[in-house]
Nucleic acid binder design. Structure first.
Lengths: 216, 216
DNA sequence: GTCTATACATCGATAGAC
DNA sequence: GTCTATCGATGTATAGAC
């Protein structure tokens, strides 16, 4: 513990400390909110119970978040930070297609690891909730990270990108909805990516239609 | 209008009429419930407002549905009936793959035409709601209808089926979530099905891995 | 079946004292 | 920042008249 320099202006430092405490408590609230949401569901989150978990009364939460939707927005931003951190931690791979398979598998696993987080990030289960521009920018950042990997693996057109997002979204959704805790759709990551890349290649070498087989 | 046969037993007919009226009013309630859900969201559906829309007071709704969840269950069954009717109305096609493309396109269109219906049928946005066995049987009926078409087009293994459900689910979700009213993912139906069928064929003719290209 | 009336629980949100 | 008190809304459910 270092002593404070008492020659500093009196007003600035305490303000910073307050902001620091304020932000720290906001983080703690968000963390407890995740716990309750995992237990009761996102929409059933109760501000009274959340307040009790962080040793406050319900109205005091409004000193940290202007509304319940603002809390959801903070959770949305938090979840996207986790998503970006996950993507940044992926190891380097030799080929773009292996890196793409890694990303898909990691994304599905990320989704199943916390279905409530998946819901908030990728579905819109809370009526009236729209992410703020600041939070949405985080979601866009991940989308662009994925787009870059996708283009490195050969995707080119807007249709190529859209088809890929559909495949990944579908694998994640089926895994979360129909086999939580299992790997029934995670297992299909490699096959799905290779299926997709084969199609992207076919699109660029033909007109996209499948030729009829010769007399088999 | 035909006259009634007054020689019939007196009790039976009125009872039937009552049941008829009862069922008719249940249908009307469900219809109004869809309207309100489309306006305010599924979870925000208010029984008091619903009752007003069908010229009842709130407690009187309990003469038709035992609880709010029972109402959701009736809506779930209703939506699945619409889904089955849609599938049954599809025209015959020459080839199984064309029929499959039709089904996929119709399913995505069906989803986007009513996002709230899509939510209730394919996501689980209502905390605590689980379809009753009777309603769930309707959902299974559609799944099996789709499975049959899929097998006719060449799908064989459980993985084949799972991969397909993921693709369709993903296309629908992306269309509903990111381009409601448009056709950005609907347009990809044919490409997606052909991509998928090419992969199914490759799975059966090889070990599933993609051979490296010769020196391009 | 439908009504009035009422009760009890929950919730998000606000006013105003300290 | 935190509190107490309160508001208005919700869903659930019941009693009892008609």
């Amino acid at each position: 513990m270092s002593d404070r320099d008492w020659n500093q202006p009196v007003e600035a430092a305490p303000t910073d400390r307050r902001r620091e405490r304020h932000v720290a408590k906001q983080s703690r609230i968000v963390g407890e909110a995740w716990k309750l949401a995992r237990r009761d569901g996102l929409a059933a989150l109760s501000l009274r119970e959340l307040a009790a978990q962080v040793d406050l009364r319900q109205p005091s939460l409004y000193a940290y978040f202007d509304s319940k939707l603002a809390l959801y927005d903070a959770m949305f931003a938090d979840g996207n930070h986790q998503l970006l951190a996950m993507a940044a931690a992926l190891p380097e791979r030799d080929t773009p297609s292996e890196a793409l398979i890694d990303l898909v598998r990691a994304l599905i696993t990320f989704s199943t690891k916390d279905p409530v987080r998946y819901q908030l990030l990728f579905q819109r289960p809370v009526p009236g909730f729209e992410p703020s521009p600041e939070s949405y920018a985080l979601a866009l950042a991940f989308y662009e990270l994925a787009s870059d990997r996708l283009k490195a693996a050969g995707a080119k057109t807007a249709d190529d990108l859209d088809l890929f997002t559909a495949i990944v979204s579908g694998l994640s959704h089926q895994q979360v909805a129909n086999d939580p805790g299992g790997d029934r759709w995670v297992r299909l990551s490699r096959r799905a990516v290779e299926m997709y890349l084969a199609d992207v290649e076919r699109q660029s070498t033909t007109d996209g239609t499948i030729p009829r087989k010769a007399t088999s």
